[in-house]
Amino acid sequence: MPAALEVLNPAADPPTLAIAFALARVPAGFPSPADDHLEAPLDLNEHLIKHPAATFIVRASGDSMRDAGIHDGDLLIVDRSLSPRNGSIVVACVDGELTVKRLQKCGGRPYLTPENPAYPALWIDAGSTFEVWGVVTNCIHRLH
């Protein structure tokens, strides 16, 4: 699969991260003949991005999703090819504005819930335009 750096920065060489890692556990003396061919540095893109053509990286701003582990400034991996499930965290588009929320359905009517008691749930009025822009699959939070 193409590396995310290909997605993000066409001028740079993929892969982004090279971590040497021995894949086959060899009890004694017989290295797998496949090792020479299969060993490649671990590529985080492979782990984080299943559909490169449909995946975008956006930056979260605000603290309304704090209890879901999404903090101000975190990077969100958003896959547009996925169909959202009830309870998926999505980038939603309400009346042209994008927002990150948990998507819930009640009696077929969608509503968006924050993950912070300080914020109210957002019901979608019949007169509003609403669509799911993409499904958030991962959140990258820097700790150091």
Partner: peptide
Amino acid sequence: TTRWDELLSVAT
């Protein structure tokens, strides 16, 4: 889609 410092910012 090509610059880390120009990503789309989405309000939570």
